[in-house]
Amino acid sequence: MAEAVSIHGVGRAFPGRDGPTPVLHGIDLHLRPGEFVAVLGASGCGKSTLLRLIAGLDTPTTGEITIGGRKVSDCDPRCAMVFQEPRLLPWRTVAQNVALGARGVPNAETPEAMLERVGLSGSARAWPHQLSGGMAQRVGLARAFVRKPAVLLLDEPFAALDAFTRLQMGDLLREVCRDRSRTVLLVTHDVSEALRLADRVVLLGGKPAAITAEYATAGRDANRLRAEILGRFGLHEAA
């Protein structure tokens, strides 16, 4: 079942040469159960750091993150993370890599069924190095989906893919999330992708990064919204 994610006044500073360098500051964000939220921001603005904090791979310096009302501490089993690179384990076959996601999850789907859904049932016994980039990233998605996570965290999962594969993967993601059985946070720097997939788009910016604006996508004209968001980043498309 999907869970609500609450981020209260979260900040994260990393130790630097001249004392701690704040990367995130005063982040307040609430995701309703089953909601699909996209976080938009320039490269290196701290988007990935925010995701890692929610997943429990990192600990906030200030503030608190809860999932379903329970505080996140250490790697949270209710989350599944898809990274920018596929990060498959090279010594496991494709099916064994997907099985890693199902590990310790009692009601997980079978790796075989999951591979079928991402269109890779023919590659179940292949080694990761035999896959193309798009196929490998699909395995990465399958590894996260198979867990039936309450919270799905996606860290620019399509950034390294070609435009066509990226659209395909977006459709796949939308299809998997249509039943609202999981809360999704997608980090991206692709405005169109964010608008196409998410219920709500959150802009992250500044140094240290904070939330600068929020847009609900329902009932809004995507092109107008896109121009407005790009304008926020100081970009103006030719008419």
Binding site: A55, R87, L100, R103
Partner: peptide
């Protein structure tokens, strides 16, 4: 390092 992080993220 990223592979170790994958392991941790998936509960190992």
């Amino acid at each position: 390092r990223k592979l170790i992080e994958v392991g941790r993220a998936y509960g190992l």
